[in-house]
Simulated scan of single mutants.
Amino acid sequence: MHHLLRRLPLILAFLAAFVPAALRAQADVQPGTRVRILPTVGDTLIRGTVVTLDSASPLIAPKPAAEFVRIPFATMERLEVSRGGRASTTAGGVIGAVVGAGAGLGAALLWTRDCEYVCGAAQVGSAVIGGAVGLVVGVLLGSSSPHGQ
């Protein structure tokens, strides 16, 4: 018995790895929840809103508008629950690029105050590098941040 208790975390981790995603997400599903479902048969992703729910299956109002669909949990390969709006990848990239370019140019202006020949090139280069770094950081932050939050 002692050996079993010592291995319990390993056993639980093993079981959790093989529990279907639909069963793990089932606890989060309530009427009004936006979901994406991939049935085990076929490859058509179903997007919609849960209308009603019982222990075996949700009734889904699909998007685009169509007749309601009841899909048993047992026939779901994947059930994803919406956690918010769309990612702000583009907005994050644009804002990051502008802020990064401004920071790069500002830093170059401070460092190249007393130069004679390469000031313009150094300032443009710093703005481009700053903009590129800002773009990457903005895209990464924007892709993990939904609109409106």
Rank of each mutant, 00 (worst) to 15 (best):
M1H: 12
L4M: 07
L5T: 06
R7S: 00
L8S: 03
L8A: 06
P9H: 11
P9F: 08
L10V: 10
I11Q: 10
I11N: 01
L12M: 02
L12D: 02
A16M: 13
A17L: 12
F18D: 05
A21F: 08
A22E: 04
R24T: 09
R24C: 07
A25F: 04
A25Y: 08
Q26M: 10
A27K: 12
D28W: 00
V29Y: 09
Q30P: 00
P31C: 11
P31F: 15
T33F: 08
T33R: 09
R36N: 03
R36S: 09
I37W: 11
P39C: 02
P39R: 01
T40P: 05
T40C: 08
G42P: 14
D43N: 04
D43L: 13
T44L: 13
L45A: 06
R47F: 12
G48D: 02
V51C: 04
L53Q: 12
D54A: 05
D54C: 06
S55G: 11
I60Q: 07
A61C: 01
A61T: 12
P62C: 12
P62E: 14
K63T: 05
P64S: 13
P64N: 06
E67I: 02
E67T: 10
R70C: 08
R70Q: 14
R70P: 02
R70K: 05
I71K: 07
I71A: 11
P72D: 15
M76T: 05
E77H: 14
E77T: 04
R78V: 05
G84R: 05
T89Q: 11
T90L: 08
A91D: 12
G92S: 04
G93T: 00
V94Q: 09
I95D: 05
A97T: 14
V98G: 02
G100S: 06
A101P: 15
G102E: 02
G104P: 10
L105Y: 13
G106A: 04
G106L: 00
W111D: 03
T112L: 15
T112P: 00
D114M: 00
V118N: 15
C119V: 09
G120E: 06
A127L: 07
I129Q: 14
G131W: 08
V133S: 14
V136D: 13
V137Q: 00
G138A: 02
G138Y: 12
V139C: 06
L140A: 07
L140R: 00
P146H: 01
H147L: 12
G148D: 00
